[in-house]
């Protein structure tokens, strides 16, 4: 077997409890990252569901002709940020109002003419539901001649935007903090592994092994420990997900890309931690 692989596996064999414990602790630290991932992901899903209701409504003048309205609809559909434009006629506006406000049936019945304007409901495409786009679309709609008035939930859009940035920043910050904890744990475990092999390292230096060569098995061991920790974290997160989904409320599982990125991050963190630990050790021995 190859020297590097053999020495890295020898680390596991020589101290299975220690390396197992290290992987488990790394797993716990990354599990916290996984929980944050779960929360963030589901928050994002929820936000985008709310966001999909973000729309700009353009109320039309009563004297607008059918061709004017068609032109307006076509013009709006040409905007790249627009997903759909729905025309709501005066009649359907009234029908909707009657349905939604059935308590006021008497009022509606007493009406001689329909006071509700026709409108265009403009839905924005995903990724274009931030405040800037909404305002841009509103201003475009406003200058259309047949448009009387434009409305959109301005505060609502702003608040959603803030919420999204907050959720992103919080989970990035906390995820980073716990990833660092994981790296520290791997670093400590590797310091112990390095200590267990200090005699071999001493001999390697004595006879003239390259530093990179000395580092390599530890690098691999750190990478594998991090990877194992990542697997543990994914399993724990999956358990948490199932429990919450079954007994509390339905939440979405993480996208595959996130899982892969998490695994890789675990491995890379392990590798980096080991480089740091070996470098420190090599500085101390002569």
């Amino acid at each position: 077997m190859n020297y590097v692989l053999r020495e890295a596996l020898a680390g596991f064999k020589r101290a299975p409890v220690l390396t197992g414990l290290a992987a488990a602790m790394v797993g716990l630290a990354l599990f916290v990252v996984g929980l944050f991932g779960l929360v963030t992901h589901n928050l994002q899903v929820a936000l985008s569901q709310i966001e999909s209701r973000v729309e700009v409504v353009a109320y039309l003048r009563d004297d607008a002709s059918a061709t004017d309205i068609e032109d307006a609809v076509a013009g709006l559909r040409d905007q790249p940020e627009v997903e759909s434009v729905i025309f709501v006629s005066k009649d359907s506006a009234l029908a909707r109002a009657r349905r939604d406000l059935s308590d006021f049936e008497e009022v509606f019945r007493g009406l001689e003419s329909n006071p509700l304007p026709a409108s265009l409901e403009i839905q924005l495409s995903e990724g274009n539901r931030g405040p800037e786009t909404v305002e841009l679309l509103a201003s475009i709609a406003e200058v259309i001649p047949v448009v009387e008035d434009v409305q959109y939930g301005r505060e609502w859009v702003d608040r959603l935007d803030t919420l999204r940035s907050l959720a992103g920043a919080a989970s990035a910050g906390l995820g980073l903090a716990f990833a660092l904890v994981a790296a520290l744990i791997i670093g400590t475990a590797l310091r112990i592994a390095i200590f267990a092999r200090r005699d071999e390292i001493y001999v390697m230096r004595l006879v003239g092994a390259r530093d990179a060569f000395i580092r390599r098995p530890f690098l691999l061991e750190g990478f594998l420990t991090g990877l194992a920790g990542g697997v543990v974290a994914i399993v724990l997160t999956a358990v948490a997900w199932r429990v919450v989904s079954r007994f509390l409320f339905r939440i979405e599982w993480l996208p595959a890309g996130w899982l892969l990125a998490g695994l890789l991050a675990g491995g890379i963190l392990g590798g980096l931690a080991s480089i740091q630990a070996v470098r420190r050790h090599l500085k101390e021995v002569t």
């Binding site: 001493y202 001999v203 004595l206 006879v207 003239g208």
Partner: peptide, 28 residues
């Protein structure tokens, strides 16, 4: 390390790897 390959060194206390054979020590 380059210099170390030109200069061999032995000590009073041998500094061999315990638990390995003579062949394994040299082979290592």
């Amino acid at each position: 390390w380059k210099l170390r390959r030109r200069v061999g060194m032995v000590f009073q206390d041998f500094r061999l790897l315990r638990g390995r054979t003579a062949l394994e020590n040299v082979g290592f």
